[in-house]
Amino acid sequence: MTTISIDNVSRWFGNVVAVNDVTMTIGPGVTGLLGPNGAGKSTLINMMAGFLAPSNGSVTLDGAVIWRNEQAYREIGIVPERESMYDFLTAREFVVANAELHGLPDPAAAAQRALATVEMEYAQDRRIETYSKGMRQRAKMASALVHEPSVLLLDEPFNGMDPRQRLHLMDLLRRMGAEGRTVLFSSHILEEVEQLAHHIEVVVAGRHAASGDFRKIRRLMTDRPHRYLVRSSDDRQLASVLIAHTSTAAIELDLREDALRIQAVDFAGFTEFLPRIARDHGIRLFTVSPSDESLESVFSYLVTA
């Protein structure tokens, strides 16, 4: 059972605060680190991987500080986001080299096992420079798994993968988690995290926005106030009917845009009620457009929720 603890960690680059007073614990199983681009996910993963020192606070692996602690890599496997590898090597040479660098007693056998795990045996003797992005990702995975680490850190591992490769990697990570390894992956795509991780940590603008069971957080995201821009054949009548319903909290008649701006508090109720009431009153809906559906606004809501 290996646990990574992040205690009151901040990290800044010059005047820019990338991570702001974050505390979280990553334990065995699969954990998703979710947040929009630029939220601080990579900075957090890099601190957990020992590639970056926290400006404040501490990042530890079972109590041992990770920064400047080479021995931590006996327990940690890392799949970096960057594509660069030793492209002049074949995947087999690359993974064998990683096994040798870990000081494994039989590097060739360990490399073979790792390549079999990621199903890369068929292309293992081709140079990495000839690989597709998905193949590169699997070669990186094999190199991270070769020493059978108890912690696996993956930075945006699904970027650039086709659906089949994505499912393959998800299956692999699920099994790793089921075996008792501590698996942490970052993503800015909600659906990716939803499919793979029960436990998620959400970061927004460098802050720890939410932590816990994915379904609860997902519900929180769904139930937040939604804003819509609606254009219809009779905006005033539609407004008068909608405001009487419990699913709406506020309605503004925007004369410049010639539209209604609606704040809905009950997402499911509003989306069911709006088309029904429009039909019943003979009102034609021209535009129904969510105006705050960006991932950033969803996450920002979590910070204040």
Binding site: R113, T117, M176, R181
Partner: peptide, 18 residues
């Protein structure tokens, strides 16, 4: 897909050299 990884945990691997 076949997964052939060993159970996770410390001590599964011995460091080869100092």
């Amino acid at each position: 897909m076949s997964v052939t990884t060993a159970p996770a945990g410390r001590g599964a691997l011995q460091p080869a050299a100092g």
